[in-house]
Write a protein that binds this DNA or RNA. Structure first.
Length: 547
RNA sequence: GCGCCCAUAGCUCAGUUGGAUAGAGCAGCAGCCUUCUAAGCUGCUGGCCGCAGGUUCGAAUCCUGCUGGGCGCGCCA
């Protein structure tokens, strides 16, 4: 937001030097002291085409900048950077602007009037969510929040299939356990059946509340009943876990509806009309090689059942038909192979696949004491997301899963996560928030109210200026994280913001300072509180007022 | 064999879309509380940015080729 105060002038000065720049001027924040507050490399970027030395062009631009009350100095540095040093008045103006935003600090209207659809989690109801699902949950939900904070109208969707082979296997697994519970021990457990403890739990429940009815049923009826009970149990479990993580979907989209509404049939017919479908070996194939892929793929098996690819294409086409401006998929790296096929299919049907943004996050390794943890200590089976939440808390789960770039393999350190102290990065942020709240509460007790008209010109301490500079970057940071689909950027930003506040807190006494300074610092603290709170809300973690 | 992702301090990772002397946390060492939360702050130690070329004023960042790791490559999802 700093650049607002100099950008127009730079445009004018550059034009006067013979350099017309379309669009915004690129700015950077110098890392070294003595290089000003903002820096631009426009002279170096364009010197060549004007046939000038970068430093000469830079100096011509600098000479064209008029004197201003806000700008301390503009100078040429290094190979041709133009460094801008502001007077403190710019920072005071920024605090004023930020304060005027009320609870909207960090919000953007970059996506105002646009709609965004995001599909995440999307685990089929065949069992509880396991710990590895956590990354998809946290990344998806944080991205949804980011888009909402950028002004988009967001639809959060959970896509599931309760009709396929996996569900039949779930039903059969429960059915067999139920037979065992009812004393028929000779019924063999299916080879690819589900082995989790929850299967037995569901079977036990049915044995307890529905045994007589089940005994009356045919095997077919009993299997269907077990499947239905299993689905209900699993969905209840999944939804409970998501609520614990502060995740709420707007739509649960059933794959089966794609069949009942004819969308799958339409999709295959449309592909066939375009000559992209053929029969071979009793199966129906999608001619992906015609679309530039390595090999054709089966979309309807010789048994007559479609493979996942076909409803996936129908589903993604439907998302576009529903009219969203941006459609985001969140997948783990293990699903990467399906993406090109689905996109190729939708594109072949004449849709603009540019609206799709696919986020593929890498896998997660859980580590404790330097050793890889694969299984739950309690059950010896792969451990559930519930167990992870219980172990480290929902805030830590959400934060840890988004704090690294989605493209990198994530190491989830359970030891660090369990640490409820200074080593844990989430607490560092929440502590900053709680510390501010504590001061504001004390101020209130002293009868000191936040004064939005405070004279901010008394804020001149380097720690105050650094904190304000950090605050001023929030909105652009949120926009960048959103645009680039990078939730971890917010975690990084908030750590810097918390650090800037802790520094300010340490060096700048608020309560008890002389009245004008006290009022100004109190306002600055409150602006920081609102920024930190909003950042934590974007991450979906709690904002404790005391710790 | 093919496709995608990754490689930066002892460990885990950032690096603002190609910029200035590559940063943070943890671990290690040394300091700071009679005053608003020490879950904090300050200082020190720590680097062939996997290797080799290329592109240009300028590369951790872009291109090519290697090496090493992850995930895929089904009439499973």
């Amino acid at each position: 937001m700093m650049q607002r105060y100099i950008e127009a002038q730079l445009h004018r000065a550059a034009a006067a030097a013979g350099l017309e720049i379309d669009g915004p001027i690129p700015f950077g924040v110098p890392k070294q002291d003595g290089q000003g507050h903002l820096s631009t490399n426009i002279a170096m970027m364009h010197a060549k085409k004007l046939g000038k030395q970068p430093r000469v062009l830079a100096q011509e631009i600098v000479d064209g900048i008029e004197k201003s009350e806000l700008v301390e100095r503009v100078e040429v540095a290094g190979p041709g950077f133009i460094n801008v040093t502001f007077r403190d008045a710019v920072y005071h103006a920024m605090v004023k602007d930020l304060d005027g935003l009320g609870d909207h600090i960090g919000r953007s209207d970059a996506g105002a009037g646009r709609t965004m659809h995001i599909e995440y989690v999307s685990a089929n109801p065949t069992g509880p969510l396991h710990a590895g699902h956590g990354r998809n949950c946290a990344v998806g939900d944080t991205l949804a929040n980011l888009y909402a904070w950028c002004g988009y109208e967001v639809t959060r969707e959970y896509y599931f299939n309760n009709a396929g082979n996996q569900m039949n296997m779930l039903g059969r697994s429960i059915y067999v356990r139920l037979q065992h519970a009812l004393g028929n021990n000779d019924v063999p457990f299916p080879e690819d059946g589900y082995h989790g403890e929850y299967i037995a739990e569901i079977a036990t429940q049915i044995a307890r509340d529905h045994a007589d009815a089940v005994r009356e049923m045919s095997e077919e009826e009993a299997l269907a009943y077990c499947r239905k009970r299993g689905e209900e149990w699993c969905f209840a479990s999944i939804k409970r876990t998501l609520v614990a993580l502060n995740i709420h979907h707007d739509v649960y989209y059933n794959e089966d509806s794609l069949y009942t509404t004819g969308k799958v049939r339409d999709t295959i017919e449309d592909l066939r009309e375009r000559g992209l479908v053929y029969e071979k070996d009793g199966a129906t194939w999608f001619a992906l090689t015609q679309l530039g892929s390595q090999q054709d793929k089966v979309i309807v098996k010789s048994t007559g059942e479609p493979t996942y690819r076909l409803p996936d294409i129908a589903y993604h086409r439907d998302k576009l038909v529903r009219g969203f401006d941006v459609v985001i998929d969140v997948f783990g790296a293990d699903h990467i192979a399906t993406v090109p096929d689905v996109l190729a299919g939708v594109k072949a049907l004449g849709f603009d696949t540019e609206r799709f943004r696919v986020v593929i996050h890498q896998m997660v390794t859980f580590v404790e004491n330097g050793e890889i943890v694969k299984f739950s200590k309690r059950s010896g089976k792969s451990f559930t997301l519930d167990e992870l939440i219980e172990e480290v808390g929902a805030d830590v789960v959400r934060f840890f899963f988004i704090m690294r770039a989605v493209g990198t393999h994530l190491e989830f350190d359970l030891g660090l996560a369990k640490e409820e102290g200074d080593k844990n990065p989430v607490f560092y942020l929440q502590y900053a928030h709680a510390r501010i709240c504590s001061i504001l509460k004390k101020a209130e007790e002293k009868g000191l109210a936040i004064n939005h008209q405070s004279d901010l010109s008394v804020l001149v301490h380097p720690r105050e200026i650094e904190l304000i500079a950090q605050l001023s970057r929030m909105r652009a940071t949120v926009e960048r994280a959103c645009e680039n689909l990078e939730p971890h950027v917010i975690a990084e930003y908030l750590r810097d913001l918390a650090g800037a506040y802790h520094n300010f807190y340490h060096d700048c006494r608020i309560l008890g300072a002389e009245p004008a300074l006290e009022a100004a610092r109190l306002l600055l603290a409150d602006v920081t509180r609102r920024a930190m709170r909003n950042g934590l809300l974007i991450l979906g973690v709690t904002t404790p007022e005391r710790m």
